[in-house]
Design a protein around this nucleic acid. Structure first.
Length: 410
RNA sequence: GGGGGAGUAUCCAAGCGGUCAACGGAUGGCGCCUGUAAAGCGUCCGGCUCAGCCUUCGCAGGUUCGAAUCCUGCCUCCCCCA
């Protein structure tokens, strides 16, 4: 692993147990960690303008190679000045490699995988085949076949011009048997080498690359993967894969994997972003998290609230909000909470008004941003465990006794 | 006054002798969503002592082995002509 380079520098600040604060310095500015990273899969944080995301305090967003490759295509984005220019985002940008789609397009996503619930039916097998050379997909737009190899992924990410590229991997389902997981993980390691080789040869000098640790739910495979990725010439590490049947198993896998990663590396936990999971991840010393959940839930009428018994969710499309004059979350600084009550927001969401989508997106992203800001402050104050416990007991993220110092811009 | 049309479950709306508690949609209830195939998906939606039974298709009679579907009368609403 590179400890430092012109393309990325990770400075660790305060430590509190395994938890730590830090700053990820990218060519497009700093990212204070622990950080939550909103998804801008198709070149937009759905529902919001880029400047709005920045105004919420976010310093990095994540774009997706597969989606942007299919449309509008790397040439068009490159011509617009890369994804930064294309979407008008001036801060740090990380791009996922398309590796998750190897899984999600084949299995339908985590919910489907876990219990066969959630979305069902639809076109199946958009992943045509997974081979040593790469993966044959069927385009989500027109069904045309497309091929993504480690080299293609890196090439597209180079065109996107992200500050951090993720290596192309196979995101293995947790229920894959040991034999398949082992062979898949080894192939992912070979893909890692090919990604790095291509990037070394033709990639942008200022683009960092993160390796991805796979290995499914198997401790020895996770260990092997952590060693393989750590010893490669990467700028940071990400933990990938679907991490288990349920939260308990996920925590177990994370608990065994996180300590295997080199201390000095920025550590990104891919795809995890529920409130309790973020706190658990931070406690394990993980630095960066991305997740579709806050923005997706918002579009589905669900607001994040400090209600651990309901998994921190308030479903405004369910009954029982008529006449409720309370804000979604009292004390929340977002406009949804400052200007409106549950009665109105529930009405808006059920009426499928775009305003509801926007307000709830802003609220959910505000909620997580507050969580991260105060978590960082708590780590610096040496009281992260207490902060985490308070939030897990129902305290609002901004209610912590630890007041965040004015965070300096950088 | 004359002519024509319509009344189906919360709403809209199919059905036009049996396979009808009755297509479909909406509303509503519930469940779900973790590197976004997702402003989405699933499920329920007459009642009950629920693998069955009971009460329904404006109301009342009738025909038939059998009617939401056919016949008779009544009620209500809509349109056109006076």
């Amino acid at each position: 692993m590179r400890v430092e380079s012109e393309r990325l520098r990770f400075e660790i600040g305060a430590r509190d147990g395994a938890a730590r604060t830090g700053v990820l310095r990218t060519p497009h500015g700093p990212v204070k960690t622990p950080a939550f990273i909103p998804l801008a899969t198709k070149g937009t944080v759905r529902g919001l303008e880029s400047h709005e995301v920045a105004e919420l305090g976010y310093e990095m967003v994540l774009g997706n190679t597969y989606h942007l490759f299919v449309s509008p295509g790397p040439e068009r984005i490159s011509a617009a000045g890369g994804l930064h220019g294309f979407m008008g985002w001036e801060r740090a940008l990380i791009t996922d490699s398309g590796g998750f789609q190897v899984f999600s397009l084949a299995h339908g996503g985590v919910a489907n995988e876990v219990k066969g619930s959630g979305r069902q039916g639809g076109e199946q097998g958009s992943v045509v085949s997974i081979e040593e050379e790469g993966v044959h997909f069927r385009s989500y737009r027109d069904g045309a076949e497309l091929f993504i190899s480690p080299e293609v992924s890196m090439q597209v990410q180079a065109a996107l011009g992200s500050d951090i590229a993720l290596v192309f991997d196979e995101c293995t389902p947790f229920h894959a048997d040991r034999d398949y997981t082992a062979r898949s993980t080894e192939r992912t390691h070979r893909w890692l080498d090919r990604c790095l080789a291509w990037h070394e040869r033709e990639g942008p000098a200022r683009q960092a690359v993160f390796g991805i640790v796979q290995g499914g739910v198997y401790e020895d495979l996770r260990r092997e993967s952590a060693e393989a990725v750590s010893s490669a010439d990467v700028d940071g590490l990400a933990i990938g894969g679907t991490l288990g049947r349920d939260k308990a198993e996920m925590r177990e896998v994370l608990g065994m994997t996180a300590p295997l990663l080199p201390e000095a590396a920025p550590k990104h936990l891919l795809g995890i972003g529920e409130v309790d999971d973020l706190l658990a991840g931070i406690a394990l010393g993980l630095d960066v998290f991305d997740c579709a959940v806050p923005t997706r839930l918002a579009r589905h009428g669900v607001a994040l609230v400090s209600d651990p018994d309901n998994r921190f969710r308030l479903d405004l499309r369910k009954s029982g909000h008529t006449g409720d004059r309370a804000p979604i979350a009292s004390g929340c600084p977002c406009p949804a909470c400052q200007n409106h009550d549950r009665d109105y927001l529930s009405y808006l969401s059920r009426a499928e008004e775009l305003t509801a989508v926007r307000l709830l997106c802003i609220h959910n992203l505000t909620y997580l941003q507050e969580l991260m800001v105060h978590a960082r402050a708590a780590i610096e104050a040496g009281s992260f465990a207490a902060y985490s416990a308070a939030v897990m007991a129902g305290a609002a993220p901004w209610e912590s006794s630890t007041r965040p110092p004015e965070e300096q811009g950088t």
